[in-house]
Measured scan of single mutants.
Amino acid sequence: MMAYMNPGPHYSVNALALSGPSVDLMHQAVPYPSAPRKQRRERTTFTRSQLEELEALFAKTQYPDVYAREEVALKINLPESRVQVWFKNRRAKCRQQRQQQKQQQQPPGGQAKARPAKRKAGTSPRPSTDVCPDPLGISDSYSPPLPGPSGSPTTAVATVSIWSPASESPLPEAQRAGLVASGPSLTSAPYAMTYAPASAFCSSPSAYGSPSSYFSGLDPYLSPMVPQLGGPALSPLSGPSVGPSLAQSPTSLSGQSYGAYSPVDSLEFKDPTGTWKFTYNPMDPLDYKDQSAWKFQIL
């Protein structure tokens, strides 16, 4: 009977010793046993002879290597770790002494450095960015050149030099007046198309007034536009458009034309069986010896 009264063996659950049927240790109110408190290391007290050895090595170098620390530790009968900690504390003490010396050398008012006064946003004049500046400075420094007289040679050079070769001289006033084509001369031969040399188009003023001019072949195509416009036809070669000034309004060009419109200028042929003959000019830059190549039959 006494065997049943004795408590059973101890069981360990999660490293906790349980005594038989008792489960009081598993209750929430019972805390787990805490780790033992780490003991504080005792402070090391250095003797005068030990301090002399350490100070002598510190005077040589503030960062001794492990071999120098072990050698000193053997002399003063201390572990190497204590020597390492002593050098660490000695360097910190040396830095603190240097900072105190710097503070003593500075004057009393030198510690508080005078800061520059901050400028207020409204006091300083700042350039306004509302208006974009002129990058080319046209509004201040540029002045347009004065327009020359209508009959000045410089204007003629600016007008005619675009179309004339570089080897030719500017046309005088008398020749510029001949550039304007007359109405009857352009409409006299509506079906004849003559190819003149390129030099005649640039230099010869008579080429624009003769039936064999460069633009005589364009007349049949330009004249039928007159009834559609409801007024006189516009002429690209009329009046002052080739003269001194090219800047004319469309209203000033509306009254200039080749001449009176005639039914002869239409595109319809009077004789459907007729042929169109292209007159060959020996001055043509295209060297075609066979003139029969310039004739064709309209079917």
Rank of each mutant, 00 (worst) to 15 (best):
M2D: 00
A3S: 03
A3W: 14
Y4G: 00
Y4A: 00
Y4D: 00
N6L: 15
P7S: 04
G8R: 06
P9M: 07
P9A: 02
H10E: 00
S12Y: 15
S12L: 15
V13Y: 03
V13H: 02
V13E: 00
A15E: 00
A17L: 15
L18E: 00
L18G: 00
G20K: 11
P21A: 05
P21H: 11
S22F: 14
S22R: 08
V23N: 02
V23K: 05
D24T: 13
D24M: 12
D24R: 13
L25D: 01
L25C: 01
M26F: 11
M26W: 12
M26G: 06
M26Q: 01
Q28C: 09
A29K: 06
P31E: 02
P31T: 06
P31L: 15
R37I: 07
K38M: 05
Q39G: 07
Q39M: 10
R40G: 13
R40N: 12
R40S: 12
R41P: 12
R43K: 11
R43F: 13
T44F: 12
T45Q: 05
F46R: 13
F46G: 15
S49K: 06
Q50I: 15
E52S: 05
E53S: 09
L54Y: 14
L54S: 15
A56D: 05
A56I: 07
L57G: 14
A59K: 08
A59I: 08
A59T: 06
A59E: 07
P64K: 14
D65E: 10
D65H: 10
A68K: 10
A68E: 08
A68S: 00
R69H: 13
L74N: 06
K75Q: 11
I76D: 15
P79A: 05
P79Q: 02
Q84E: 15
V85I: 08
V85S: 13
V85D: 12
V85G: 14
V85E: 12
W86F: 14
W86M: 12
W86R: 13
K88E: 13
N89C: 15
R90E: 13
R90Y: 13
R91I: 15
A92C: 10
A92T: 14
A92F: 11
A92M: 12
A92Q: 07
K93S: 11
C94E: 04
R95T: 14
Q99S: 09
Q99V: 05
Q100E: 09
Q101M: 03
Q101V: 09
K102D: 03
Q103M: 05
Q103G: 06
Q104W: 02
Q105G: 07
Q106F: 07
Q106K: 10
Q106D: 03
P107Q: 07
P107I: 05
P107M: 06
P107S: 06
G109E: 02
G110C: 08
Q111Y: 09
Q111N: 03
R115Q: 02
P116G: 04
A117E: 04
K118Y: 02
R119D: 00
K120V: 02
A121D: 04
A121M: 03
G122A: 03
G122V: 02
T123Q: 08
T123P: 08
R126M: 02
R126L: 07
P127G: 09
T129Q: 06
D130Y: 12
D130I: 09
V131G: 07
C132R: 08
P133T: 06
P133D: 07
D134M: 06
D134Y: 07
L136G: 08
G137E: 10
G137L: 07
G137I: 11
G137C: 04
I138C: 04
S139F: 08
S141Y: 07
S141I: 08
Y142V: 07
Y142P: 11
Y142T: 08
S143L: 01
P144K: 09
P145F: 06
P145R: 07
P147T: 05
P147W: 10
G148K: 10
P149F: 02
S150I: 07
S150V: 05
S150P: 04
G151L: 09
S152D: 02
P153L: 13
P153N: 02
T155L: 11
A156L: 14
A158Y: 12
A158V: 14
A158T: 03
T159G: 00
T159M: 10
V160L: 09
I162H: 00
W163V: 03
W163D: 00
S164K: 06
P165F: 11
P165L: 10
S167C: 04
S167V: 06
S167G: 06
E168M: 12
S169F: 14
P170F: 15
L171M: 05
P172T: 06
E173T: 11
R176C: 06
R176A: 05
L179N: 02
A181P: 09
A181F: 15
S182G: 03
S182M: 15
T187H: 10
S188G: 06
S188R: 14
P190C: 12
A192Y: 12
M193H: 01
M193K: 02
M193Q: 00
T194E: 00
A196G: 03
P197L: 09
A198V: 10
A198F: 14
A198W: 14
S199H: 09
A200D: 00
A200W: 15
F201L: 03
S203P: 05
S203V: 13
S204N: 03
P205R: 11
A207N: 03
A207H: 04
P211Q: 03
S212K: 10
S213Y: 11
S213I: 13
Y214E: 00
Y214F: 06
Y214T: 01
F215T: 01
S216L: 14
G217Q: 03
L218Q: 01
L218H: 01
D219F: 15
P220V: 14
P220T: 06
P220Q: 04
Y221C: 02
Y221G: 01
S223H: 08
S223Y: 12
S223L: 15
P224N: 06
V226L: 08
Q228M: 13
G231L: 15
P232T: 05
P232L: 14
S235K: 12
S235I: 15
P236L: 15
P236E: 02
S238P: 01
P240M: 13
S241F: 14
G243R: 10
A247E: 05
A247S: 01
Q248I: 13
Q248K: 11
S249C: 03
S249V: 07
S249H: 07
P250L: 13
T251V: 09
T251F: 13
L253I: 03
G255K: 10
G255F: 14
G255S: 09
G259N: 03
A260R: 10
Y261I: 06
S262T: 11
S262P: 06
P263F: 12
P263G: 09
V264G: 06
V264T: 01
D265M: 15
D265C: 15
D265R: 14
D265L: 15
S266W: 15
S266Y: 12
S266D: 02
L267D: 00
E268P: 04
E268G: 09
F269Q: 00
K270A: 03
K270Y: 12
K270T: 14
K270R: 10
D271R: 11
P272V: 10
T273C: 04
G274H: 02
T275Y: 11
T275D: 00
W276S: 00
W276E: 00
W276A: 00
T279L: 13
T279F: 10
T279W: 11
Y280R: 06
P282L: 14
M283Y: 08
M283V: 04
P285L: 14
P285M: 08
L286D: 03
Y288C: 07
S292G: 10
A293D: 02
W294E: 00
K295Y: 11
F296L: 06
I298T: 00
L299C: 01
L299T: 01
